[in-house]
């Protein structure tokens, strides 16, 4: 049981590193989609007594959203705006990976400071979730394309969901519902926004989105 969870979590960490190092937007979308699928599976392995019906349902929904709907949506946007890769990010890909390792260390430290209750077995869950959140933040901060930022936001949400998954045993449905609502609406609205940005500025570099200052 634990090994499966750990496997997923390690995949989570690796996929984050991949996101930090990849420049092709299409690849990034696919990695993020895989991450989503992995996370969707996570709660099913966390529960000792085997997954309940509603958990199965939500996992399916999540996998559907994260693995299929969002990648599709983003790919459509990508095709629409005809951008292939992130050129000249604020922080280069090599440095990004270096930052990634620093984040990993900080996450491990945070994990040691915030021990989960005994019922939640895996010691990796807190650090890997924190690491995912940090990676998401980093993507938003270090990249220029609005699309990457949406992607970064999705990664951030993935990290949060990892915590949510850890809780799914104790807490009612509402949390998961909330996550889904949030994900759906946020991604939807942001997708629309990216469309608008593209139409208005004829590119999606957020570089140009800095007219409002002081």
């Amino acid at each position: 049981m634990n090994s499966a969870v750990d496997l997923i979590l390690i995949f989570l960490i690796l996929s984050n590193l991949a996101l930090l190092g990849l420049s092709r937007l299409g690849a990034c979308i696919r990695v993020a989609a895989l991450q989503g699928v992995a996370l969707g599976l996570l709660p099913l392995f966390l529960v000792e007594s085997g997954p309940a019906a509603h958990q199965l349902f939500f996992s399916a929904l999540l996998i559907g959203l994260k693995g299929i709907v969002f990648p599709w949506l983003l790919t459509v946007v990508l095709r629409e705006i005809q951008v292939q890769r992130e050129i000249e990010p604020f922080i280069g890909y090599g440095s990004s990976l270096a930052f990634g390792t620093v984040f990993l260390i900080v996450s491990l430290w945070l994990g040691s400071r915030l021990p989960l209750p005994a019922s939640m077995q895996s010691g990796l869950i807190v650090p890997s979730a924190f690491f995912t959140i940090m990676s998401g933040f980093f993507l938003i901060i270090a990249r220029k394309k609005a699309l990457t930022q949406v992607l970064g936001y999705l990664v951030l949400e993935n990290g949060i969901y990892a915590f949510g998954a850890a809780l799914s045993e104790n807490q009612p449905v509402l949390i998961e519902l909330g996550i889904l609502l949030d994900l759906f609406a946020a991604a939807f609205v942001m997708g629309i926004a990216v469309f608008h940005i593209n139409r208005e500025f004829e590119h999606i570099d957020t570089d140009k989105l800095s007219g409002l200052r002081t």
Binding site: M190, A193, L212
Partner: peptide, 12 residues
């Protein structure tokens, strides 16, 4: 475009 920028920042 200015209000779009504002809305985008707000949203994100």
């Amino acid at each position: 475009h200015r209000s779009l920028e504002a809305a985008w920042k707000y949203l994100l």
